[in-house]
Design a protein around this nucleic acid. Structure first.
Lengths: 214, 214
DNA sequence: GTTTGTTTGATACAAATGTTTATATTAAAA
DNA sequence: TTTTAATATAAACATTTGTATCAAACAAAC
């Protein structure tokens, strides 16, 4: 428990985030949150106005900062490489999102909250898109542009980024399917394997890639 | 309106599916459903037992059959090709899921319902996984196996399929992001473009692919 | 020590929730 | 026609919901 954890407002944010991520907005009651945060029911109203605003503040105070940390990790990973290339970008992306600076629990929360907003956008999506997604996509596009085939326009680049992104996102939020299909748990070794997969697939698609056994 | 639409039970299933997909299980009340279906509140209890069982029956009676139609479309598309190859499989997959036999509304519902189950699996996920996902993955793996690099084990094949799948899924449920990033609506032309993207990326990854302009 | 602004606490309340019950209506069978 | 089963309806149930109220406790400033 950090020092801030003592403060009611912070405790509420923590518990609210965990519950919203796990069960979704409507399935979580204010009472659940305040009970988990060991505070009074009225505290939510006092600190955040109402449930909706609390939900939004979870994104402001938790989701967005964490997303920034992931992006920062991505930048540093890329900077640590001697040369930038498409494969380096793909690897940095996969590393940042599948391993990166977040704990496994944080990673799950993060992708659950985002995916919920993708399926059914609320006000939080505007925040998420404006403050995180758009700028990061622009950054990625600028980074990748020099290494892309000549004729590929901005749209082509965008779609390539989205393709990489889809894997990163999917391998995070669809763990239950990935585990069921591959029969593997999300331990460190498997995450390494997934990073490898994303990088290889991003570079070579289905056919190529380094042959593992042969 | 079909003939079956006259029957209360079917009307409830239709409206329940639409509402569950759009707003999620907890955000939808039984009253909303019965109002939309123009029937009495108690009809849900009478025909399905309770709300949970109705939700499950939506998957049984609507989702699973539709998924089968998509898979059938995939098979026929693949069979119509003179030769089977990785690219043919990728194309059939993208065509089936992004265009295929479903209406655009159906496609959205389908992926919304599934994605909700991926984020937060309920009993419906077991149905979905056992009756649809697993068999289809096995079918895909068997189809692709002969064309995969020698050393690639079953896990490698599975991960490649999942990588393709991630794009197909993502481009369906994250429309709001894809549209915002690319600035394009999900019309026929853009869906063609997405199919092309998925196929190209699946075959060549980032670097290769046919140069569009140059 | 008093005052001031902030935070917490217990309680209240109207609205909405899923479910049940008892009754009415309709359709089919005898 | 009478009987029987299937379906639909209206009303009520006990809970749970988000939010509001108001007094108590608290900390900091004067």
């Amino acid at each position: 428990m950090s020092k801030k954890d003592q403060i009611t407002r912070e405790r509420i944010l923590n518990e609210a985030e965990a519950l919203f991520a796990k069960n979704g907005y409507d399935a979580v009651s204010v009472r659940e949150i305040t009970t988990a945060a060991r505070c009074n029911l009225a505290a939510v109203n006092y600190h955040f106005g109402n449930k909706q605003k609390l939900y939004l503040d979870v994104f402001r105070a938790r989701w967005v900062p964490r997303a920034r940390r992931v992006q920062e990790y991505f930048r540093e990973f890329l900077a640590s490489r001697d040369t930038v290339s498409t494969s380096a970008v793909a690897q940095a992306l996969a590393e940042a999102f599948l391993k990166g600076p977040l704990s496994d629990e944080e990673r799950q929360r993060q992708s659950q909250l985002m995916t919920r907003e993708l399926i059914q956008p609320t006000e939080a999506f505007e925040l998420l898109a404006g403050e995180v997604l758009r700028p990061f996509f622009k950054e990625l596009a600028d980074t990748l542009k020099p290494f892309m085939p000549e004729g590929l326009g901005n749209e082509g680049i965008a779609l390539n980024i989205l393709s990489m992104f889809s894997m990163v996102i999917y391998f995070n939020f669809a763990r239950v399917v990935v585990s069921r299909i591959t029969g593997r748990d999300y331990d460190a070794a498997f995450k390494d394997r997934l990073v490898e997969q994303i990088v290889e697939f991003s570079i070579n698609g289905l056919g190529g890639g380094k042959k593992k056994g042969a």
